[in-house]
Structures are given as C-alpha cells and as structure tokens.
Amino acid sequence: MAMCYECVNTFIDKPVNQLVVMLSIVIALLLLGLFLILRKQLRNAEKLGLLYSFVFFMVFPFAYYLYARTCQKILLSCQMAQSLVSSGVVAIVVTILLSFVVVPFIYMLSSRSKSITQENVLFRKMERHARKMGIKTPSVYLLDKAEPYAFSISHIHPSIFLTMGIVELLKPKELDAVLLHELAHIQQKSSPLKFTNTLFRLFTPISNFNILYSELNEEEKDADAVAVRMQNTERHLLSAKQKVSEYQKQAAI
C-alpha cells in the first residue's frame, strides 16, 4: 500500500503527468457539457460519439497512470497491475464490440426464432409499412415465446422480432401499430442508443444521473407518434399496449 502511495506521488509530481490528467478531465467535462446543452439538436450518432468520447477521456488518466514509466521502473507490483488492467480493458472492449455485433445474430439464429418469409401476411404488411415510411424492409423474425413483446435491432442487420404471444394476442390493426412502432425505431436507428444505455448502467455511475433516460423516453414517444400518425388514430396502439399490460399482470399472479 505504501509503495503504491509512493508510486502515485511520483506520478503526480511530474508536471507533464499533471497536465495530461487535468487536460483529459477538462476535455471529458467539456464533452459532457456539450452533450447536455446540445442533446436536442444532435442526432443519435452524434450523441453517442460525444458520450463514448466522454468515457474515453475520463478513463484515460487511469490508463496513462498505469502505463507511466515511473511506475514501471519503481515497482514490479505496478507492472503486474498494468498487465491485469490492460488485459481486463481489452477483454471489456472486445466483449462490448462482440455483443454489439453478435447479439443480433444470436437472436436470429436461435432455435426458438423463425424467419418470416415474404409469402406470409405479416411480412407483406411489414413491407407495405416500410415502403410508406421510405425505409428498406427489415427482416422479421418470430420468436417461439408466449409472452407478448416485440423489439427491433437497427444496426448490422435491421430486424424486427415478434413473439408468438404478441401475434396471437393482438388484432390485425393493433399488430400493425406495433409493427409501425418498431419500424420507427429502425428509422431512428435506436438500438445503438439502447445498447449504450445498458452498457453505461452496467459499467459506470452515469446511469445514476439517468443521462440517456430522456433520450430513450423521447425515442419511445416518437415511435408511438409515428404509429399514431400512420394509422390516423391512437386507438389501436393504446389497445395493443393495454392488452400486453393485461397479459403481464395475469402472468405475474
């Protein structure tokens, strides 16, 4: 412990190190400030870029400290800590990238999912709606689960996933409302934002400030608004939500 304390002091004593750390923290706070001020005007990709840059500059001082030459020269234990942390950081980054890319394919290739083909009425509905919205028709998958829900993935291979439960539970126009809602998410490219929110909640205290909560809420409202606008009524969407909520209440008993 005393040796680590000495290592930290030696690190901080150097003006170059002080400058790097302070500059990194200032840049991080500037980026966070930019995000908070400009969030309404920015697109999702720009918001994510600012957030990930903020995280990078917050983490950079610690990485810089661990790789500092002074520490390496003085203490073997610091070197060991460096190996542990660097391999840990690499593992986390690889896991994040892989899950961002791999998770959609896991759903698609799961034995409990079935690709809905072009002959099916559901796919043809999806195609009509996508054409009206001016987006490429995503793939549609049916999940063999009785619980009614739907979600979409907008990156890598845009797809909509519907459970058997929701297909069975809802009337045609209610299901249309759900499809339109999910298509809107694909149009907005929402899934990187949701994925980032999940990561932040897992790895950082940023989630305590609900930094992405209002963005995600806005996305949901915007997607609802698209469904209501395309159907010229909110009746079907509300009815769909009520039925799903009713199922969840029954399932919880």
């Binding site: 009785a146 619980e147 539970l169 039925k243 009713e246 199922y247 029954q250 399932a251």
Partner: peptide, 13 residues
C-alpha cells in the same frame, strides 16, 4: 379473460 387462458396454457406448457 382471453389473456388468462393464454397465460395458463403457457404455464401448462
């Protein structure tokens, strides 16, 4: 309710 039947069938499954 229709949803009750759906829930119970899922549980039986």
């Amino acid at each position: 309710a229709h949803t009750s039947i759906a829930v119970l069938l899922d549980r039986l499954h």
